[in-house]
Every structure is written in C-alpha cells, then in structure tokens.
Write a protein that binds this DNA or RNA. Structure first.
Lengths: 145, 145
DNA sequence: GAACCACTTAGAGTGGACTTCAGGTCAAGG
DNA sequence: CCTTGACCTGAAGTCCACTCTAAGTGGTTC
C-alpha cells in the first residue's frame, strides 16, 4: 500500500504519516527500489493504534517512548505496561473532565429551555409580564445569585 | 479579590486570566482607582465556568462567541442555547473517542499482564521454554496476526 | 519524448492557547 | 527617600502537532 491509499483508508494526511515516521512513531516502513513507501499490515495496525491513541489525547512523546521501548526488546515489557497504565490514568482523568463539562452543559441547556419557554409564554397576548425570577441565567453561574 | 488570589483559588495563572480578559472571554472586571483588577463574584463564577469548559475541550473561540451573544441581550437566548448544544455534541464525540482509547489501553494492558506472567513462569528453574504463541504483542495490533 | 501524476526530501510556516518579556506604576515598610 | 513586590501594558516568544512549500525523481500514457 502506497501512502495515498493508507492516507485515505485511515483518514490521516500523507503529511502526517510522513511526520509520524520522521519523529519515530512509525518505524520499519519498507520502501520500493525507487524509495516509495510500501506500507505492510504491521505498519497499518500501528497506524490504527496511533490514530486511536491520538484521538484519546495520548501525546506523540509518550507514543515515541513506547515505540522506543518496543524496539529495545522483550525485556521492556513491564516498562511498556507501566507506560500504558500511566497513559490510561491520564485518559481516565480527561474523561472525567469532559464528563463534568458535559454535565454542566446539559444543566445550562435545560436552564435555557425553561427560560425560553417562559419568555415565549409571557409574549403571548394577554399574558402577565415576565416574572422577576425568570431572568436569563448569568454569564457563567447557573443559579440565581 | 485581586488577580493573585483568583489565580490561586482556581489554579489558573494570572497570565491566563489577563489573557482571557484581553481576548474577550472574561468581561466587566472592575478595577481599583489605580487600575488593579478587583474580581467580583460574577467574575469568579464566569472563571469557574470557563475553567470547566476549557477542561472539556471547548475552544476559546466558541466561548467568546457565547460571551458575545450574552452581551447582546436576552433575545439571543435561543442562539446561546444552540451554541451550547453544538458544544455538547462535540464533547460527547470527544468522550466517545477517549473511551475507545481507554478500552484499547485496557485491552493492551491486560495482554501485557498475561505475557509478563508467562515470561516469568518460563524463567523459573526447570520450566519448559516459552510457548511460541506467547510472544509480545506487536507494536500496535492486539492479536497474534 | 513530453506531459503528467504520485511520490520524495528538508525545512519553513501555521494555529491554538497560552507564556514570557521589557518596561512602567503604585502602595507599604524600613 | 528608597526598595520591594504585586500589579499593569503591549508585544514577542513558546510549545505541540501538524501542514505546507520548493525543488526534484520515477514510472506510465499519449
């Protein structure tokens, strides 16, 4: 597989693939006689792994470290495991932060729903004026204070 | 509250607080006569909100847009709600990506556990040599092929 | 055999989000 | 009065992870 095909298959630009190789994330990519990259199945599964890890926010640096260990041989298995565990913990933290943000967004959205409904109600003919308590939520907090 | 106190309270550098104000994320921060920022409670809750949103990966740009709408008045409530919903969807996507990465990390870690145990077993005196199938997982894929 | 296209390289440029710097002001303490 | 330290400003610098550019090569097609 040439670079264009891999690029399309994994939706990663050819530039990025070359970059990954240059910085040591992707190693042992065979070449044709004329120097053109010919990705094999091993390369592909590495790429897929990298894509997944990058999407999870794992840094290029950590991944390079992992690849370094890998190339050093079997005896680095415990170190690699430790590295993955460290990264896993970071991903968990990130998920917790995102979840907190998501909860907050949901809360605010629900709040807007109420507010907008109230505003519409008070716009209908013959409606009494809007309640003082139903003002828009402030620029940041969610409560009335 | 002066900038140093706010910085400590929310664990955000004073530089970042000034930066947020400069780009329009944080508005209406009162000043003392000599020009020193005196953050009030409204500012604080905005800061807390910003911190949460940033931790969830919401871009500075989107947050500025939100603040812009906010300053335009009550009639932008539906637009603000739409903006938050859009951001919420992005956060959900991000969580899904992280979760996929987390699952994969857990899988790989479990794999290493097995591998390391096997390696230790075969190192004990009198053990038969390691199985051919128990080699280290490859640099990316999780299976044996 | 010229055009064309995908590929190659080294190196420079980009965008987002800060972060640091240089130089300046102000209030309090010795 | 002078120093100290926290604050101020605008502008430049930094970091990460790409992304693009320029200049060139190799193989196929009309």
């Amino acid at each position: 597989m040439k670079i264009a095909e891999v690029s399309k298959r994994y939706d990663i630009s050819a530039d990025t693939l070359r970059y990954y190789e240059r910085v040591g994330l992707l190693r042992h990519v065979p070449r044709t006689e004329s120097g053109i990259r010919e990705y094999n199945e091993t390369n592909c599964s590495t790429i897929e792994f990298l894509k997944c890890m990058r999407a999870a926010g794992v840094s290029i640096e950590a991944l390079i470290e992992y690849m370094d260990l890998f190339d050093e041989g079997e005896e680095t298995a415990p170190a690699r495991k430790a590295l993955l565990e460290e990264q896993r913990d970071l991903v968990r933290e990130r998920i917790a932060d995102l979840q907190a943000g998501l909860d907050r967004l949901n809360y605010k959205i629900a709040n807007y729903e109420t507010i907008i409904l109230e505003a519409e109600k008070s716009m209908r003919p013959g409606a009494e004026p809007a309640q003082p308590g139903s003002r828009l939520c402030d620029s940041c907090g969610e409560g009335q204070a």
